[in-house]
Design a protein around this nucleic acid. Sequence first.
DNA 1: CGAATTTATCTCCACGTCAAGATAAGTAAT
DNA 2: ATTACTTATCTTGACGTGGAGATAAATTCG
Lengths: 142, 142
Amino acid sequence: METTGLHLWLVLWKAYQALRCHAERHIHSVGLGFSDFAVLEVLLHKGPAPVNTIGELVHLTSGSITAAIDRLERKSLVARGADPSDRRARVVRLTEAGRALIECAFRDHAAAMEAATGGLSAAERGAAVALLRKLGRSARER
Amino acid sequence: METTGLHLWLVLWKAYQALRCHAERHIHSVGLGFSDFAVLEVLLHKGPAPVNTIGELVHLTSGSITAAIDRLERKSLVARGADPSDRRARVVRLTEAGRALIECAFRDHAAAMEAATGGLSAAERGAAVALLRKLGRSARER
DNA sequence: CGAATTTATCTCCACGTCAAGATAAGTAAT
DNA sequence: ATTACTTATCTTGACGTGGAGATAAATTCG
Protein backbone atom coordinates (compact mmCIF):
# COMPACT_ATOMS: atom_id res chain seq x y z
CA MET A 1 0.00 0.00 0.00
CA GLU A 2 1.28 3.41 -1.00
CA THR A 3 1.63 5.76 1.92
CA THR A 4 3.25 8.81 0.36
CA GLY A 5 1.66 12.18 0.98
CA LEU A 6 1.25 12.66 -2.74
CA HIS A 7 -0.66 9.45 -3.11
CA LEU A 8 -2.94 10.25 -0.20
CA TRP A 9 -3.61 13.62 -1.76
CA LEU A 10 -4.55 12.11 -5.10
CA VAL A 11 -6.89 9.55 -3.59
CA LEU A 12 -8.48 12.21 -1.41
CA TRP A 13 -8.97 14.38 -4.46
CA LYS A 14 -10.69 11.64 -6.40
CA ALA A 15 -12.98 10.70 -3.54
CA TYR A 16 -13.86 14.36 -3.09
CA GLN A 17 -14.68 14.73 -6.76
CA ALA A 18 -16.86 11.63 -6.75
CA LEU A 19 -18.91 12.85 -3.79
CA ARG A 20 -19.03 16.40 -5.04
CA CYS A 21 -20.41 15.16 -8.31
CA HIS A 22 -23.30 13.54 -6.45
CA ALA A 23 -23.85 16.64 -4.35
CA GLU A 24 -23.85 18.93 -7.34
CA ARG A 25 -26.35 16.89 -9.25
CA HIS A 26 -28.90 17.28 -6.46
CA ILE A 27 -28.16 20.90 -5.77
CA HIS A 28 -28.24 21.84 -9.43
CA SER A 29 -31.62 20.21 -9.79
CA VAL A 30 -33.00 22.76 -7.33
CA GLY A 31 -31.65 25.58 -9.49
CA LEU A 32 -28.88 26.52 -7.08
CA GLY A 33 -25.13 26.65 -7.34
CA PHE A 34 -22.86 25.01 -4.81
CA SER A 35 -21.94 28.22 -3.02
CA ASP A 36 -25.48 29.49 -2.91
CA PHE A 37 -26.58 26.24 -1.35
CA ALA A 38 -23.87 26.57 1.27
CA VAL A 39 -24.98 30.12 2.09
CA LEU A 40 -28.59 29.05 2.56
CA GLU A 41 -27.47 26.12 4.68
CA VAL A 42 -25.53 28.41 6.98
CA LEU A 43 -28.52 30.69 7.33
CA LEU A 44 -30.78 27.74 8.09
CA HIS A 45 -28.61 26.29 10.80
CA LYS A 46 -26.97 29.37 12.29
CA GLY A 47 -29.69 31.96 11.75
CA PRO A 48 -29.35 35.47 10.28
CA ALA A 49 -25.78 36.74 9.96
CA PRO A 50 -23.81 39.63 8.44
CA VAL A 51 -22.60 39.21 4.87
CA ASN A 52 -18.92 38.67 5.59
CA THR A 53 -19.53 36.31 8.49
CA ILE A 54 -21.32 34.05 6.05
CA GLY A 55 -18.50 34.54 3.58
CA GLU A 56 -15.94 33.27 6.03
CA LEU A 57 -18.04 30.24 6.94
CA VAL A 58 -18.42 29.16 3.34
CA HIS A 59 -14.93 30.28 2.27
CA LEU A 60 -15.89 33.07 -0.10
CA THR A 61 -14.04 36.37 -0.41
CA SER A 62 -15.88 39.64 0.11
CA GLY A 63 -16.51 40.13 -3.59
CA SER A 64 -17.77 36.59 -4.08
CA ILE A 65 -20.09 36.57 -1.09
CA THR A 66 -21.59 39.88 -2.18
CA ALA A 67 -22.31 38.36 -5.58
CA ALA A 68 -23.76 35.24 -3.97
CA ILE A 69 -26.10 37.21 -1.71
CA ASP A 70 -27.08 39.32 -4.73
CA ARG A 71 -28.08 36.19 -6.63
CA LEU A 72 -30.09 34.84 -3.72
CA GLU A 73 -31.75 38.18 -3.10
CA ARG A 74 -32.70 38.45 -6.76
CA LYS A 75 -34.46 35.11 -6.36
CA SER A 76 -36.13 36.32 -3.15
CA LEU A 77 -34.58 33.51 -1.15
CA VAL A 78 -32.82 35.84 1.31
CA ALA A 79 -33.19 39.47 2.36
CA ARG A 80 -30.67 42.03 3.53
CA GLY A 81 -31.51 44.09 6.60
CA ALA A 82 -29.82 46.68 8.76
CA ASP A 83 -27.78 45.75 11.80
CA PRO A 84 -28.98 47.98 14.66
CA SER A 85 -25.62 47.73 16.44
CA ASP A 86 -23.38 48.37 13.40
CA ARG A 87 -24.50 50.56 10.57
CA ARG A 88 -21.84 49.19 8.23
CA ALA A 89 -23.10 45.66 8.47
CA ARG A 90 -25.95 44.16 6.45
CA VAL A 91 -27.65 41.25 8.14
CA VAL A 92 -28.84 38.51 5.83
CA ARG A 93 -31.83 36.34 6.71
CA LEU A 94 -33.87 33.67 4.95
CA THR A 95 -37.21 34.60 3.45
CA GLU A 96 -40.15 32.20 3.77
CA ALA A 97 -39.45 30.90 0.29
CA GLY A 98 -35.75 30.55 1.05
CA ARG A 99 -36.40 28.60 4.21
CA ALA A 100 -38.81 26.27 2.49
CA LEU A 101 -36.37 25.66 -0.33
CA ILE A 102 -33.29 25.00 1.75
CA GLU A 103 -35.11 22.79 4.25
CA CYS A 104 -36.25 20.58 1.43
CA ALA A 105 -32.98 20.74 -0.49
CA PHE A 106 -30.96 19.99 2.61
CA ARG A 107 -32.96 16.86 3.36
CA ASP A 108 -32.40 15.66 -0.18
CA HIS A 109 -28.75 16.52 0.08
CA ALA A 110 -28.31 14.56 3.29
CA ALA A 111 -30.04 11.57 1.74
CA ALA A 112 -27.87 11.81 -1.37
CA MET A 113 -24.70 11.89 0.72
CA GLU A 114 -25.94 8.94 2.73
CA ALA A 115 -26.40 7.00 -0.46
CA ALA A 116 -23.13 8.16 -1.97
CA THR A 117 -21.14 7.01 1.05
CA GLY A 118 -23.04 3.74 1.30
CA GLY A 119 -20.06 1.79 0.05
CA LEU A 120 -18.49 2.12 3.48
CA SER A 121 -19.82 0.42 6.61
CA ALA A 122 -20.66 2.52 9.65
CA ALA A 123 -17.40 1.47 11.24
CA GLU A 124 -15.43 2.40 8.15
CA ARG A 125 -17.13 5.73 7.94
CA GLY A 126 -16.29 6.41 11.56
CA ALA A 127 -12.66 5.55 10.94
CA ALA A 128 -12.60 7.71 7.83
CA VAL A 129 -14.10 10.65 9.70
CA ALA A 130 -11.48 10.37 12.43
CA LEU A 131 -8.61 10.19 9.97
CA LEU A 132 -9.87 12.98 7.76
CA ARG A 133 -10.54 15.22 10.71
CA LYS A 134 -7.01 14.69 11.97
CA LEU A 135 -5.58 15.21 8.51
CA GLY A 136 -7.53 18.38 7.90
CA ARG A 137 -6.67 19.84 11.25
CA SER A 138 -2.95 19.20 10.96
CA ALA A 139 -2.81 20.44 7.39
CA ARG A 140 -4.53 23.66 8.38
CA GLU A 141 -1.99 24.22 11.14
CA ARG A 142 1.04 24.16 8.87
CA MET B 1 -18.37 9.48 16.62
CA GLU B 2 -20.67 10.70 13.89
CA THR B 3 -20.99 8.23 11.07
CA THR B 4 -23.63 9.82 8.86
CA GLY B 5 -22.87 10.20 5.18
CA LEU B 6 -23.39 13.93 5.46
CA HIS B 7 -20.82 14.24 8.21
CA LEU B 8 -18.28 12.19 6.31
CA TRP B 9 -18.84 14.41 3.30
CA LEU B 10 -18.25 17.58 5.31
CA VAL B 11 -15.07 16.29 6.91
CA LEU B 12 -13.81 15.09 3.55
CA TRP B 13 -14.55 18.49 2.07
CA LYS B 14 -12.62 20.30 4.75
CA ALA B 15 -9.62 18.01 4.53
CA TYR B 16 -9.64 18.43 0.78
CA GLN B 17 -9.72 22.20 1.07
CA ALA B 18 -6.87 22.23 3.56
CA LEU B 19 -4.64 20.14 1.31
CA ARG B 20 -5.70 21.95 -1.82
CA CYS B 21 -4.76 25.21 -0.18
CA HIS B 22 -1.22 23.91 0.34
CA ALA B 23 -1.06 22.57 -3.20
CA GLU B 24 -2.27 25.81 -4.71
CA ARG B 25 0.20 27.91 -2.85
CA HIS B 26 3.09 25.98 -4.33
CA ILE B 27 1.66 25.74 -7.80
CA HIS B 28 0.76 29.41 -7.90
CA SER B 29 4.30 30.31 -6.92
CA VAL B 30 5.45 28.74 -10.18
CA GLY B 31 3.06 30.95 -12.14
CA LEU B 32 0.68 28.13 -13.00
CA GLY B 33 -2.97 27.46 -12.30
CA PHE B 34 -4.16 24.19 -10.85
CA SER B 35 -5.48 22.79 -14.13
CA ASP B 36 -2.43 23.82 -16.10
CA PHE B 37 -0.24 22.04 -13.59
CA ALA B 38 -2.35 18.91 -13.94
CA VAL B 39 -2.02 19.04 -17.72
CA LEU B 40 1.76 19.30 -17.54
CA GLU B 41 1.88 16.50 -15.02
CA VAL B 42 -0.06 14.22 -17.33
CA LEU B 43 2.27 15.03 -20.20
CA LEU B 44 5.29 14.38 -18.02
CA HIS B 45 4.15 10.98 -16.80
CA LYS B 46 2.14 9.69 -19.76
CA GLY B 47 3.95 11.36 -22.64
CA PRO B 48 2.43 13.27 -25.59
CA ALA B 49 -1.31 12.90 -26.02
CA PRO B 50 -4.20 14.37 -28.02
CA VAL B 51 -5.98 17.38 -26.56
CA ASN B 52 -9.18 15.69 -25.48
CA THR B 53 -7.42 12.66 -24.02
CA ILE B 54 -5.67 15.03 -21.66
CA GLY B 55 -8.96 16.77 -20.98
CA GLU B 56 -10.56 13.54 -19.84
CA LEU B 57 -7.64 12.68 -17.59
CA VAL B 58 -7.76 16.02 -15.79
CA HIS B 59 -11.56 16.34 -15.93
CA LEU B 60 -11.84 19.33 -18.21
CA THR B 61 -14.48 19.73 -20.92
CA SER B 62 -13.43 20.29 -24.51
CA GLY B 63 -13.70 24.06 -24.24
CA SER B 64 -11.74 24.21 -21.01
CA ILE B 65 -8.93 21.94 -22.15
CA THR B 66 -8.57 23.96 -25.36
CA ALA B 67 -8.18 27.11 -23.27
CA ALA B 68 -5.70 25.39 -20.97
CA ILE B 69 -3.52 24.18 -23.84
CA ASP B 70 -3.74 27.66 -25.35
CA ARG B 71 -2.39 29.18 -22.13
CA LEU B 72 0.43 26.66 -21.92
CA GLU B 73 1.29 27.06 -25.59
CA ARG B 74 1.39 30.84 -25.20
CA LYS B 75 3.98 30.33 -22.46
CA SER B 76 5.89 27.91 -24.70
CA LEU B 77 5.55 25.11 -22.17
CA VAL B 78 3.80 22.75 -24.59
CA ALA B 79 3.46 22.49 -28.37
CA ARG B 80 0.67 21.18 -30.56
CA GLY B 81 1.59 18.85 -33.38
CA ALA B 82 -0.22 16.86 -36.03
CA ASP B 83 -1.29 13.27 -35.47
CA PRO B 84 -0.16 11.29 -38.53
CA SER B 85 -2.91 8.72 -38.05
CA ASP B 86 -5.82 11.14 -37.49
CA ARG B 87 -5.87 14.54 -39.08
CA ARG B 88 -8.53 15.82 -36.68
CA ALA B 89 -6.38 15.23 -33.64
CA ARG B 90 -3.74 17.60 -32.30
CA VAL B 91 -1.04 15.89 -30.28
CA VAL B 92 0.29 17.91 -27.36
CA ARG B 93 3.84 17.44 -26.10
CA LEU B 94 6.07 19.17 -23.58
CA THR B 95 8.71 21.60 -24.78
CA GLU B 96 12.14 21.61 -23.19
CA ALA B 97 11.11 24.54 -21.00
CA GLY B 98 7.86 22.82 -20.10
CA ARG B 99 9.60 19.62 -19.10
CA ALA B 100 12.13 21.46 -16.97
CA LEU B 101 9.38 23.44 -15.25
CA ILE B 102 7.05 20.56 -14.48
CA GLU B 103 9.84 18.27 -13.30
CA CYS B 104 10.91 20.86 -10.80
CA ALA B 105 7.37 21.89 -9.86
CA PHE B 106 6.30 18.30 -9.43
CA ARG B 107 9.13 17.56 -7.02
CA ASP B 108 8.16 20.59 -4.97
CA HIS B 109 4.54 19.56 -5.10
CA ALA B 110 5.29 16.07 -3.86
CA ALA B 111 7.36 17.50 -1.02
CA ALA B 112 4.61 19.95 -0.11
CA MET B 113 2.03 17.17 0.00
CA GLU B 114 4.38 15.08 2.09
CA ALA B 115 4.64 17.91 4.58
CA ALA B 116 0.95 18.70 4.48
CA THR B 117 -0.02 15.13 5.31
CA GLY B 118 2.67 14.81 7.96
CA GLY B 119 0.08 14.93 10.71
CA LEU B 120 -0.76 11.30 9.97
CA SER B 121 1.60 8.40 10.59
CA ALA B 122 2.50 6.07 7.74
CA ALA B 123 0.02 3.53 9.07
CA GLU B 124 -2.72 6.12 9.30
CA ARG B 125 -2.02 7.32 5.79
CA GLY B 126 -2.23 3.78 4.52
CA ALA B 127 -5.56 3.29 6.25
CA ALA B 128 -6.83 6.60 4.90
CA VAL B 129 -5.78 5.69 1.36
CA ALA B 130 -7.60 2.38 1.57
CA LEU B 131 -10.79 3.95 2.91
CA LEU B 132 -10.78 6.85 0.47
CA ARG B 133 -10.11 4.59 -2.46
CA LYS B 134 -13.04 2.41 -1.49
CA LEU B 135 -15.24 5.42 -0.90
CA GLY B 136 -14.35 7.03 -4.20
CA ARG B 137 -14.83 3.86 -6.16
CA SER B 138 -18.23 3.08 -4.70
CA ALA B 139 -19.44 6.65 -5.06
CA ARG B 140 -18.45 6.67 -8.70
CA GLU B 141 -20.40 3.48 -9.31
CA ARG B 142 -23.73 4.85 -8.13
C1' DC C 1 -11.89 65.71 20.42
C1' DG C 2 -9.42 64.59 15.92
C1' DA C 3 -6.31 61.57 13.24
C1' DA C 4 -5.07 57.10 12.02
C1' DT C 5 -6.36 52.41 11.69
C1' DT C 6 -9.45 48.67 11.24
C1' DT C 7 -13.71 46.56 9.71
C1' DA C 8 -17.88 45.59 6.61
C1' DT C 9 -19.42 45.90 2.33
C1' DC C 10 -19.49 46.83 -2.36
C1' DT C 11 -17.67 47.74 -7.35
C1' DC C 12 -14.94 46.54 -11.15
C1' DC C 13 -12.09 43.71 -13.82
C1' DA C 14 -9.54 39.48 -15.16
C1' DC C 15 -9.52 34.67 -15.15
C1' DG C 16 -10.97 29.82 -15.51
C1' DT C 17 -14.77 27.02 -16.32
C1' DC C 18 -18.70 24.99 -18.68
C1' DA C 19 -22.40 24.36 -22.16
C1' DA C 20 -23.85 24.68 -26.66
C1' DG C 21 -22.90 25.04 -31.14
C1' DA C 22 -19.65 25.06 -35.33
C1' DT C 23 -16.27 22.81 -38.22
C1' DA C 24 -13.78 19.26 -40.03
C1' DA C 25 -12.32 14.57 -40.33
C1' DG C 26 -12.98 9.77 -39.64
C1' DT C 27 -16.38 5.61 -39.79
C1' DA C 28 -20.34 2.76 -40.97
C1' DA C 29 -24.24 1.42 -43.76
C1' DT C 30 -26.82 1.10 -47.76
C1' DA D 1 -20.23 6.64 -53.63
C1' DT D 2 -23.52 8.90 -50.88
C1' DT D 3 -25.61 9.47 -46.65
C1' DA D 4 -25.71 9.45 -41.84
C1' DC D 5 -23.30 9.13 -37.61
C1' DT D 6 -19.47 9.70 -34.54
C1' DT D 7 -15.21 11.89 -32.93
C1' DA D 8 -11.67 15.74 -32.13
C1' DT D 9 -11.16 20.28 -31.69
C1' DC D 10 -12.24 24.98 -31.49
C1' DT D 11 -15.41 29.23 -30.77
C1' DT D 12 -18.60 31.95 -28.30
C1' DG D 13 -21.27 33.57 -24.47
C1' DA D 14 -22.54 33.29 -19.69
C1' DC D 15 -21.40 32.42 -15.01
C1' DG D 16 -18.93 32.15 -10.54
C1' DT D 17 -14.77 33.44 -8.34
C1' DG D 18 -10.86 36.08 -6.54
C1' DG D 19 -8.17 40.33 -5.98
C1' DA D 20 -7.57 45.25 -5.88
C1' DG D 21 -9.40 49.15 -4.64
C1' DA D 22 -13.35 52.43 -3.02
C1' DT D 23 -16.57 53.94 0.50
C1' DA D 24 -18.41 54.39 4.84
C1' DA D 25 -18.70 53.32 9.61
C1' DA D 26 -16.51 51.88 13.85
C1' DT D 27 -12.50 51.78 16.89
C1' DT D 28 -8.10 53.09 18.84
C1' DC D 29 -4.85 56.32 20.47
C1' DG D 30 -2.48 60.56 21.38
